[in-house]
């Protein structure tokens, strides 16, 4: 049996990819299960999906903690979380990026396959939806599942949802990705501070969970504590303020759903810890003082 964990963002189709992979394995006569992270995450938030494949019936129903493969649909995620968490020592990570494996820096040195799925998707499907192209890369990188089965699964699964033509285009994207995947070794050296979690005992937990504000080892919890959750990592495009043009009219300040804009000296200042990059500020600024730019994370 081998296990695959997909990292994507809500709305990017990670779950569909995980399910299509299971279908491909099934078409090859294998037994496969796929499931999403059981949560309530929203569009844009980092989400996970899982696939388990074996030659015989899979009876285990737990979540996957030590995958053999990790698939990253959105490159920005490797900057904000340790995607290698729990990956087996001889496991492999497959990343959608323009970089070569040797140029990718992760928390440890690890077998790594890279594919520019975004470009392939744009060229083939016409949209930056990478969840089918990545399946081709999985086929190539793992060598465990044939590209023919992947194509068939995509046509069946995506074709049913999006129409025959779209299904075929997605299958072509997977084939192209299969041909262009590069396998190598990623570099070590990226540091992640493990986020501590507040896990009180039954005696420490306030009765019924009713909570005021509490300072814990894991940071602030309770009333007003959601600011501990930095949503800036969701962002793909970042707003940049042109201070020359900004008149301090406060329209963006009013409209920011995150409250991530403060007025400082009558100019809009964006708090990138929380900005999710929705672009409302750019769209609503009457003076064209805000521009959304592709996020570059170092």
């Amino acid at each position: 049996m081998y296990e695959i964990r997909f990292h994507g963002r809500g709305g990017q189709g990670g779950r569909m990819a995980a399910e299509a992979l299971a279908l491909a394995a099934f078409l090859e006569g294998k037994y496969a299960v796929s499931f999403p992270f059981f949560g309530a995450e929203r569009r844009g938030a980092p989400v996970r999906a899982f696939t388990r494949i074996d030659d015989k019936k899979i009876r285990i129903k737990t979540q996957i903690y030590e995958p053999d493969y990790v698939v990253v649909l959105d490159e920005t995620l490797i900057e904000t979380e340790d995607v290698l968490e729990g990956l087996k020592p001889d496991g492999m990570v497959i990343i959608n990026t323009q970089k070569k494996p040797e140029e990718v820096k992760l928390s440890r040195s690890v077998r790594c396959a890279t594919i520019d799925a975004t470009t392939i998707a744009l060229e083939t499907i016409g949209r930056a939806i990478t969840n089918t192209a990545i399946l081709g890369a999985i086929s190539r990188a793992t060598g465990k599942i044939g590209i023919d089965a992947i194509e068939k699964a995509i046509i069946e699964k995506f074709g049913a949802r999006l129409g025959k033509e779209a299904g075929e285009k997605n299958a072509i994207a997977a084939r192209k990705a299969y041909e262009k995947t590069i396998v190598g070794i990623a570099k070590a050296g990226k540091k992640f501070e493990g986020k501590k979690q507040w896990l009180p005992t039954v005696d420490e937990l306030p009765l019924g969970g009713s909570i005021g504000t509490l300072q814990t080892e894991a940071g602030l919890v309770g009333i007003g504590s959601f600011s501990e959750n930095k949503t800036g990592g969701w962002r793909v495009f970042m707003p940049v303020v042109d201070e020359q043009r900004c008149t301090g009219c406060k329209i963006c300040w009013f409209y920011c759903p995150e409250g991530a804009i403060k007025m400082v000296d009558n100019k809009a200042k964006i708090n990138y810890d929380y900005c999710k990059g929705c672009g409302i500020c750019e769209n609503e600024c009457p003076f064209k003082a805000i521009e959304m730019k592709r996020e570059v994370r170092i």
């Binding site: 949560g39 309530a40 979690q197 896990l199 009180p200 005992t201 039954v202 937990l205 306030p206 009765l207 019924g208 969970g209 009713s210 909570i211 005021g212 504000t213 309770g222 009333i223 007003g224």
Partner: peptide
């Protein structure tokens, strides 16, 4: 617990499995 603006509390929040089992024990 109470709903007092001078000592605000949250009562009945959306709670993940990390906490519900302990609450049931309580």
């Amino acid at each position: 617990a109470s709903l007092d603006p001078d000592k605000p509390m949250a009562i009945g929040t959306f709670t993940p499995p990390e906490y519900i089992q302990e609450e049931r024990y309580q």
